[in-house]
Design a protein around this nucleic acid. Structure first.
Lengths: 231, 231
DNA sequence: AATGGCATACTAGTATGCAAGTTGCCGCGA
DNA sequence: TCGCGGCAACTTGCATACTAGTATGCCATT
């Protein structure tokens, strides 16, 4: 279920307990297993996972930094509501950075890069059934990451993974409609085509269209689940 | 000395000890008081500041996440070297986002916004002497933050504050040359002029020119202080 | 003298106990 | 029945003790 980016920076390689608790909680919040506003306590989580409060505390801190939790001293820790402003900012930042990187990718792509993108697209087509949602999601991410790599800016995608967090919370609220997967893959195909054609303008436009599709879905979800949100 | 951005998000209100240690260490690393490669230990820092290891640990973790420290389990914690690739990525991200926001600012600026920018410029001119470097730096930041606010994307600047961190470490290595302050203010004036004229293209170009100036200085410093860097 | 192994002195990771503060319930009084 | 006051149970923040792993330097052995 939780094949979300591990998001452990290479600068700190910590013990397994912290990672276990962190990953589990992150997945639980992201998937909506524990919903916005709900309170969780260090003690209870520690007991549940069979560890002490210390690693739980660090996991809480990290998740609070990422905007998933809200820690109120002497009161409690709560799953943060999804802030519409944060979602909007994520959209803005993502569009700005990805349109620029895909343009670079189109300028710099070599044959091997196009081949790599094509391989990803092929894989993507094999996991379009609704029951393979997590695999589909992972390949979606991998495609965008690959574009950043080709552009010579892999770190930009690393940043976007963090920035996208609030956006992904929204995405998890939805059971995507029937033609959704096909539409995404089709748009990816358009982007890859323009990159393969070394057409920066076309690539940027294709990426913009793609992100607008994603964002429109997010807005739709936000409207129909307004109780989870905060203005 | 340390009027650097506090960078504590409003979602977490932590104890005063954590903030004290965090701010002090961040300033020490940023200013070069403790230089890249140097090792620091939780125990020693805790003793020095008269607190226990717990808040020090949290400060360490946060600083590691920001790329200032490198924690090696069971071995030690060290001031991270300045990675040239990280500096380059910071430049790329900053240019991409700021050029877009200043364009928006030029489209949306109202009279009050232009007045606010002009006020900042006036203040900036009053602190151009070398001995008021920290005030100059703060007003520089404030100007960019104001542009993001006018663009309707204040959160973008919040992100850039974090992204710029590695870049600021480089800036701190330099004693700026004589005409530096005047050049910066002059470029800010150009940007504000184009924003006031509601000229998005001009504003973007002025911003790009400004950032190229800053980046050129960074590259220069990186070359002359290569012992602090890591490829 | 060179080298291999071991003891020691560090390190961060974890567990737990105590302190300070807030919330909310529960009982008492009007 | 309604309102108020106080207490109890909860929370996180901080301090401290303990665990386990690593580097280093010394000493014995070759």
């Amino acid at each position: 279920m939780t094949d979300s980016p591990t998001s452990s920076s290479p600068t700190d390689i910590r013990g397994p307990r912290l990672h276990g608790v962190y990953d589990a909680l992150r997945a639980a919040v992201l998937s909506g297993e524990i919903h916005p506003g709900e309170g969780i306590s260090e003690t209870r989580v520690a007991a549940r996972y069979g560890v002490s409060r210390t690693p739980v505390r660090e996991a809480f801190r990290r998740l609070a930094d990422e905007g998933f939790l809200r820690i109120v001293p002497q009161v409690g820790t709560f799953v943060a509501p999804i802030q519409l402003s944060a979602v909007s900012d994520s959209q803005f930042i993502r569009e700005t950075l990805e349109c620029r990187t895909v343009r670079l990718a189109a300028e710099r792509a070599e044959a091997a890069d196009v081949a790599s993108l094509t391989r990803l697209l092929d894989s993507h087509r094999t996991v379009m059934s609704p029951d393979r949602h997590s695999e589909f999601f992972a390949l979606d991410e991998a495609t965008h990451a690959e574009l950043a790599r080709i552009a010579g800016r892999p770190a930009v995608w690393d940043l976007l993974v963090a920035v996208k967090a609030q956006l992904d919370r929204v995405r998890f609220l939805s059971l995507h409609s029937e033609g959704w997967a096909a539409k995404i893959v089709g748009e990816h195909q358009c982007i890859v085509d323009r990159v393969a054609a070394r057409d920066p303008d076309g690539a940027e436009e294709a990426m913009r269209a793609h992100l607008r599709t994603v964002f429109a879905a997010v807005d739709e979800i936000a409207r129909t689940n307004s109780h989870f949100f905060e203005t």
